[in-house]
Every structure is written in structure tokens, then in C-alpha cells.
């Protein structure tokens, strides 16, 4: 796997690597992909219908609102302010 690909994948996964780390990751990924490529020799196609668990509309959760969680419990593991999660300023 080339560095460009690893860089792209790391962007997708929001990971940053130093150049050395990136090289090491590319090496690791190359040997991992080698194993993954064994499946290329078999020619089969996924059929979503075969994975049907036969759940019907009637089996789904009834629409009833229940109490939410206390705000402080939602926020307790976060940097928070004004009962909100604090994020660096997002510009659109």
C-alpha cells in the first residue's frame, strides 16, 4: 500500500501520523492487505435478503417518550459550558 493511500485513509479516520509513522503504517498495511487479498480468488456476491432476521413492523419499539437523562450526567465527561459541549469554533 502506498503512502498516498495510507494518508487518505488516515484522513478518513481523523488520525495524524508523522512521516515515519506513516511509512511504518504503510508497511504494516501492505502485509495485512496481503492476507485480505486471499478473498479475491473466490467469486461470490453478498445477498442482503439472506441476512433477513424476519423482524416486522409490529416488532419494533412503540413510540413512547420517556424521561431524558440529567444534563449534568450527559456532560460530565466533557469540557462543557452553558450546558453544551465545547467545540473549537466551526466555520462553515
Amino acid at each position: 500500500m502506498d503512502l498516498e493511500m495510507v494518508r487518505y485513509l488516515s484522513q478518513l479516520g481523523k488520525l495524524s501520523f508523522t512521516d515515519d509513522e506513516l511509512k511504518k503504517a504503510a508497511e504494516d498495511m501492505t502485509s495485512i492487505i496481503e492476507i485480505m487479498d486471499t478473498i479475491k480468488e473466490i467469486d461470490i456476491v453478498y445477498d442482503p435478503l439472506k441476512d433477513n432476521h424476519n423482524v416486522y413492523l409490529g416488532g419494533l419499539r412503540k413510540d413512547e417518550a420517556m424521561d431524558s437523562f440529567p444534563t449534568e450526567k450527559i456532560l460530565k465527561n466533557a469540557v462543557n459550558s452553558e450546558n453544551c459541549f465545547v467545540v473549537p469554533k466551526v466555520v462553515e
Binding site: 459550558s81 465545547v86 473549537p88
Partner: peptide, 13 residues
Amino acid sequence: LIHDDLNGVSLAD
């Protein structure tokens, strides 16, 4: 997202 220009952060609700 509520943008808090004063503190230069965004607040997520």
C-alpha cells in the same frame, strides 16, 4: 451548533 463568537468556540446542543 451555537457559535459563541465572544469566546471563539462553538457549543453543541
